[in-house]
Write a protein that binds this DNA or RNA. Structure first.
Lengths: 207, 207
DNA sequence: AGCCGCATAGACAGACCTGTATATATTTGA
DNA sequence: TCAAATATATACAGGTCTGTCTATGCGGCT
């Protein structure tokens, strides 16, 4: 009996596994296993067994495990950016409010008992510079570059003296929140870091 | 028989590999491979081959791969805490100076081109709650608990209204620095986060 | 009806994994 | 010096890994 994924699957969410098309069934099963256990410790055979699909069907949709891993990471990235966009584009928010909305958005997910850290940062832990899986590494690199870009676009309207410093600080507080929530849950982490971010932005604005 | 502690590394650093005793040779080779590539992607056979040791010798010193992994993580933890202790116990430092000394200490290592993130956080990415390697998971859990304890002990003398919040903020900035340096190097990360920490402590002190 | 595309089922190859066994050599220390 | 402890070299067992192959079933479309 397989457990339902806690990860957000926009168009997939809610449907039972066997109501899904094979490709989605595979990706959903793999995402759940990869996130819960780690990528390298989950084999193709297990994903095939738990998604109830034939091996040939798997290899028709994903020519290699690396392809599946890259799809997994791209999917996680898309979900995460969609969540960020929704939160920060809320109407009526001030410019600093938009930055702080990141923390409001992650607070819930990071408190979930199924939370295991940032899936992409954990992917980087397994597929660093010396791995030879270019598609996977490129996906990871794009994620971090785009996240930086995204936060920079939120900071820009504040017209700070040193915007790049603020971007680094906010990003660090976000990434730090992920690691902390994974390793030492239950300390009001996001609340503390939201307050830190607020103070840092206030101070930067008054310079 | 006086067995050399595995946590002692002073006499290991600097010597060429084949001048070391087998156990140290194995641990050093494994540490290098685990850190560069990830733990699960490096097999025993490769560690044995690169450390120039016989398989029987390996299994005499490390009854299982999990034992080796735990030794690796304990060794990393010891090095890191020793570095922290050295930096924060520097004479002449104020109480806040001790906290900020953490950032001064990590700045260099995080800029190194060989830096690949925190070895223990990366270990957690591979050996989370659902792995069945109790020794490894216990080592990781101890690390995070002790790191929290350590920072709390530095914050305590400041006598803040809300010390736990400051602890979380400092820890987050540290962990965030590690992730950032790993994923987006070259942005003056530690400098920015040291300034953030300073501001946060100043503000907390004036409450 | 009949065909085509997709899914299933499962065997199989070849590489790699952890861990053990056997037999030989080398170091060490009493 | 000589025996015990330790290291070496290598073969092997049994499992798991990714990826391929063959053969079969089934549903939709013309």
């Amino acid at each position: 009996m397989q457990r339902r994924s806690e990860l957000v699957f926009a168009d997939v969410d809610g449907k039972s596994l066997d109501a899904l098309a094979p490709r989605e069934r595979i990706l959903k099963t793999a995402s759940d296993l990869f996130y819960r256990l780690s990528i390298n410790s989950v084999g193709i055979d297990r994903i095939i067994a738990e998604s109830g699909v034939a091996k040939m069907t798997f290899y028709k949709h994903f020519p290699s495990k690396a392809t599946l891993i890259a799809s997994y990471l791209r999917h996680q990235k898309a979900m995460w950016f969609q969540m960020l966009a929704t939160a920060t584009e809320e109407p009526g928010l001030s410019s600093t409010g938009r930055v702080l909305a990141i923390f409001d958005a992650i607070d819930g997910p990071l408190r979930a008992p199924t939370f295991r850290g940032c899936s992409i940062t954990r992917g980087l832990a397994e597929f660093g510079p010396e791995a030879n899986t270019p598609e996977v590494q490129a996906t990871i690199a794009e994620y971090f570059a785009e996240l930086h870009e995204f936060v920079a676009s939120l900071i820009k309207p504040l017209d700070l003296d040193n915007p790049e410093r603020a971007v680094v600080q906010i990003l660090s507080l976000v990434q730090g929140s992920f690691v902390m929530a994974q390793s030492l849950p239950g300390l009001g982490i996001v609340e503390a870091n939201r307050e830190a971010a607020e103070l840092l932005l206030e101070h930067a604005l008054s310079e």
